[in-house]
Design a protein around this nucleic acid. Structure first.
Length: 567
RNA sequence: CGGGGCGUGGCGCAGUCUGGUAGCGCACUAGCUUUGGGAGCUAGUGGUCGCCGGUUCGAGUCCGGCCGCCCCGACCA
């Protein structure tokens, strides 16, 4: 394509409200434009990148036996009511009514719809396994869209669903996806790790996320340098570092702590206690009922674990007035000693601890000499603690690392979650009707594009890997009004097109600096510069964007050199 | 939903405190000069100052309400 005829709206300035590099560069480079919070238009440049990502995904999905569908995004409520998710999923689902007042929603995922097709059409185990996929828009009313296209309310997802007659079959389908996903991300130029994850609203028994390390991410990946262990922070486990408590037979004793509201303040307070010798008391409202979560002072609550422990996702931190009403004190002076009118969950790390310090349920006072076993009224012992950097791996004892990451894909062993609620059954070899064992697998495409930018950019712009670059090469005549330069540039443009290279010709009558800046910004991997310096020797320059390295080749060799470099 | 910030030509911003009828840089149009890393000069185009209401002779500016967007904490591809 000729640049002068294309729509490539690059901006000279960074957009004011973009912080993440991918957001900034994709907007500035003319790949995307914002329409609303978490709603983006994809421009021609961005579309080319997404189509390349789609092609890679499609090839790999077909490679594991996947068959492509295209389901509606506008979905009747009935199927969701059947699976129970119409009520389970809260405000994240976009809901609407048609003119007959029938409930509908915009698809946020398609388990129900594929399960409906499966139950209507599949009859025998001999038709299985099946892997069905689509590449389609998803809608999720995120509480907080952010970072450009990393987290949006409408996005494109490759979602696939496997149907097997046995659990072993599900394991195979899952494994096929695991390997396909590794290839997909690798081909897009991303290093990823597969981590154990929490299944969340999808349900099912086991799930794995693919994450790419990036400071722009919103997830945390816990990895063990000593063994293969890797997990999402939500799911990660670790050994508790043991704390030696002194002999302390004394009864709990109230003591004044004026102005102390936090663990840190109490640790610094004369006569206070180090964080690991305090009991942190968190007040939550769970299914409408006030509830306490107890942790070691230096540990943090994992809300996902709290959800697991309580069996409901309906929980939130208590409001100040609720706390006051239940315990007669404000957050910062709370404790569970003597509390028997609230449900209390205690983290395993507190088991057997004594000589502890905790709030006295009276503002400005704490208790010393608390013996967990003796002074707490039969709490529910559960795992509430969030893993942190430096904790030891449960498998090999090595210190764990915790790093920011972007969740690129998530694969789930759904098991019978949908086949039982929706009646997806086939006959097995014995002629008995059995529920189909399902899996579901998703990749967010725009997020994947953004993650590639996060991983491949510098101060001048994006450095696309050739596999997903909007154009593979750009031919830049330094001065288009120069006849020699223009004719050589046209010649190379033609030769490269002939050779099947996706090539741009920057035929704009702009100064060289403008054209170089733009080419850097939009990240074309290879730039062929046609200028007087090299032409004097019958050469042109080849500039490799990512390496920022330049070399000269003879005009006659230029097209084939480009072909070699872009592989 | 809690906290913080911001809405002024396409983009980036000033002007708001202290009311007087909208300005700068970039981009865009035309001309001349220039031409290897975002050129210079000249002349132009383009804005109901987020929306509604109020105060006032007069509102971008003051008051009230609403809407939108960004960032930080609880959710997910």
């Amino acid at each position: 394509m000729r640049w002068s005829q294309g729509f490539l709206p690059t901006l000279r300035d960074d957009p004011a409200d973009a912080e993440a590099a991918s957001h900034r560069l994709l907007v500035r480079g003319g790949f995307i434009r914002q329409l609303g919070a978490g709603i983006y238009s994809v421009l021609p440049l961005g579309r080319r990148v997404l189509l390349k990502i789609e092609r890679i995904i499609r090839q790999e999905m077909v490679g594991i036996g996947g068959q492509e569908f295209h389901l509606p995004a506008l979905l009747p409520a009935e199927l969701w009511k059947e699976s129970g998710r119409w009520d389970e999923i809260g405000q994240e689902m976009f809901r609407l009514r048609d003119r007959r007042e029938a409930d509908l929603c915009l698809g946020m995922t398609h388990e129900e719809i594929f399960a409906d097709l499966a139950r209507n059409e599949l009859r025998s185990y001999r038709e299985l396994p099946q892997i069905w996929f689509q590449i389609q828009s998803k809608f999720r009313d995120e509480p907080r869209p952010k970072s450009g296209v990393l987290r949006t309310r409408q996005f494109t997802m490759k979602d696939s669903y496997s149907f097997d007659s046995t659990w072993e079959g599900l394991d195979r389908s899952f494994e096929l996806h695991l390997e396909a996903y590794k290839r997909i991300f690798g081909r897009c130029g991303l290093e990823t790790i597969a981590v154990e994850a929490w299944s969340g609203a999808m349900g099912g028994k086991e799930s794995v996320e693919f994450q790419s390390f990036s400071e722009a991410g919103e997830d945390w990946a816990v990895t063990c340098p000593g063994c293969a262990y890797a997990a999402n922070l939500e799911k990660a486990v670790s050994q508790v570092d043991a704390v030696e408590d002194p002999e302390d037979e004394a009864a709990p004793e109230r003591f004044p702590t004026p102005g102390v509201h936090t663990i840190e303040e109490l640790a610094r307070f004369p006569g206070g206690a180090p964080a690991e010798r305090q009991i942190k008391t968190l007040f939550y409202v769970v299914d409408g009922k006030p509830t306490l979560f107890l942790l070691r002072g230096d540990h943090d609550l994992s809300e996902v674990r709290a959800v697991d422990a309580t069996g409901t996702a309906n929980l939130r931190p208590g409001h100040p007035d609720e706390i006051q009403e239940s315990l007669g004190a404000s957050a910062g002076s709370l404790g569970a000693v003597g509390v028997d009118h609230l449900t209390v969950y205690a983290d395993e790390a507190l088991r057997g601890r004594r000589g502890m310090t905790t709030g006295a349920n009276e503002d400005g006072f704490h208790l010393h000499h608390v013996d967990v076993a003796r002074d707490l009224r039969s709490p529910h012992w559960v795992d509430l603690r969030e893993v942190r950097r430096g904790d030891r791996c449960t498998k090999c004892g090595t210190e764990l690392e915790v790093r920011r990451s972007i969740e690129l894909g998530h694969i789930f062993k759904l098991g019978l979650r949908y086949s039982e609620s929706m009646g997806v059954r086939v006959l097995n070899a014995e002629g008995q009707e059995v529920p189909v064992v399902m899996g579901s697998y998703g990749i967010g495409l725009e997020r994947l594009m953004a993650a590639v930018v996060e991983a491949h950019h510098d101060e001048n712009g994006i450095c696309w890997p050739v596999s997903v670059a909007p154009w593979e090469a750009v031919v830049v005549p330094v001065k288009v009004t120069d006849d020699r330069q223009r004719s050589v540039a046209e010649r190379l443009y033609g030769e490269l097109q002939e050779a099947g290279v996706e090539v741009l010709l920057d035929d704009r009558d702009e100064r060289a600096g403008v054209k170089f800046k733009d080419a850097d910004l939009i990240g074309i991997p290879l730039r062929v510069v046609v200028g007087p310096r090299a032409l004097a020797h019958g050469n042109v320059e080849l500039f490799e964007r990512a390496a920022a390295s330049s070399s000269e080749v003879a005009i006659e060799q230029a097209a084939s050199s480009v072909g070699e470099k872009i592989g």
